[in-house]
């Protein structure tokens, strides 16, 4: 059977058709994050036949991800592969016709602007924090690229496509960021809530990528798959003329802030991330660790060790994850003690 047949069930869907399928094949989607939402959206778009997909993630596959992150297997967790790398492996087995780029790292303002310059047709939010969403939102407004917001926690989630010049932007929608935010770290998350959020995100992305913007849902979907709640919230006058991201005197504040703090507590994990101002040489590191007598486990992308009961993961780009703490000072101290 030919690869033409491959998309037959999608081209028979009249609103897409052969024309929409061809449009999709010409498009480039950026997915920010390869956690639960990133896995689901990436798989749906790759199976659907998007032309090109870039996926960026800073984390590696952990056993606690397997409960809901559909691109990963036990072997990926055993090997501690970076999520972007493991995701690309599986996505390539699913559809070798799609050009897939996987980036291990964090999305900074500089990077997102560079992607937008290259030409991105849709950005999909699969992040786990509001700061990165504000970055996506500002880049989206500056380059007039739509993005699809999605988030979920517990059995509850929400999603909306944000189209510059047409819908309110994310900052209009959420002028006050929560001081304390629910994450899968504190209240957990179940697979069906992820699947529903992904369904809503991918549906809107597919409309945008097949040239059917007129079908995009002009409302915020909110739902709770356990409590059996469901609502589409219309936008009303929510668009703010004074909005700093999409208003008349816009300044794109998220793009101008210093890109990420040097250290941060990671969402959904009892973990601190340090950013070293230099990249890491794993050979040197291995030498150093041998002298101190610490076991060091490595794969081509990262190195892991155990220090005073804390798992420590070092990435080549200079990021260091210290697990088992939410105390940035404690994490810094531990790092200093062993690596100077």
């Amino acid at each position: 059977m030919s690869s033409h047949e491959r998309y037959s069930r999608q081209t028979r869907f009249a609103p897409i058709g052969e024309q929409g399928q061809e449009a999709l094949r010409q498009k480039h989607a950026l997915i920010v994050g390869a956690g639960a939402l990133g896995c689901g959206n990436a798989e749906l778009l790759v199976r659907a036949g998007v032309g090109r997909l870039t996926i960026i993630d800073r984390d590696y596959v952990d056993w606690s991800n397997l409960q809901r992150q559909q691109l990963y297997t036990e072997q990926d967790a055993e090997r501690g592969l970076p999520k972007a790398v493991a995701a690309k492996q599986r996505l390539s087995q699913i559809n070798s016709e799609v050009q897939i780029e996987a980036i291990v790292g964090e999305l900074s303002a500089k990077e997102i602007l560079a992607y937008c310059e290259q030409g991105i047709d849709v950005m999909i939010d699969a992040t786990d924090n509001f700061e990165t969403r504000l970055l996506l939102n500002d880049a989206s407004q500056q380059y007039s690229i739509p993005w699809v917001f999605g988030s979920c926690t517990g059995s509850y989630g929400m999603s909306m496509a944000i189209i510059p010049g047409k819908t309110p932007c994310f900052r209009c929608l959420l002028p006050h960021l929560p001081a304390y935010s629910l994450t899968c770290d504190n209240v957990g998350v179940i697979g069906p809530a992820v699947a529903m959020t992904v369904s809503y995100q991918a549906a809107e992305a597919l409309k945008l990528l097949t040239g059917r913007e007129e079908a995009v849902r002009p409302s915020l979907a909110i739902f709770d798959v356990w409590a059996n709640d469901h609502m589409f919230l219309r936008m009303g006058k929510k668009k703010q003329a004074a909005c700093l991201s999409c208003g008349e005197a816009r300044t794109y504040p998220a793009l101008n802030e210093e890109t990420g703090s040097k250290a941060a507590v990671l969402c959904g994990r009892d973990t601190v991330q340090l950013r070293l101002p230099y990249s890491l040489d794993f050979e040197q590191l291995a030498e150093h660790m041998k002298r101190t007598g610490q076991p060091l486990q490595r794969n081509p992308y990262l190195a892991m060790t155990e220090l005073e009961g804390h798992r420590v993961v070092l990435f080549q780009d200079g990021r260091v994850l210290i697990h088992g703490t939410k105390d940035i000072q404690e994490a810094r101290t531990l790092y200093q003690r062993y690596f100077g």
Binding site: G33, G35, A36, L37, G38, D125, A126, T127, D128, N129, F130, R133, G150, S151, C152, T153, G154, Y156, G157, M158, L173, L174, P178, S181, L182, T183, C184, V189, L220, I222, M231, F232, L233, R234, M235, G236, K237, K238, C267, G268
Partner: peptide
């Protein structure tokens, strides 16, 4: 079922929804 501005008036008979944003993904 429509987002409201801060100065919008809610009247008897209306249905209000309180929607906490979540950041998980």
């Amino acid at each position: 079922e429509e987002f409201a501005e801060e100065d919008e008036v809610i009247r008897a008979g209306d249905t209000v929804a309180l929607i906490p944003p979540v950041s998980g993904g």
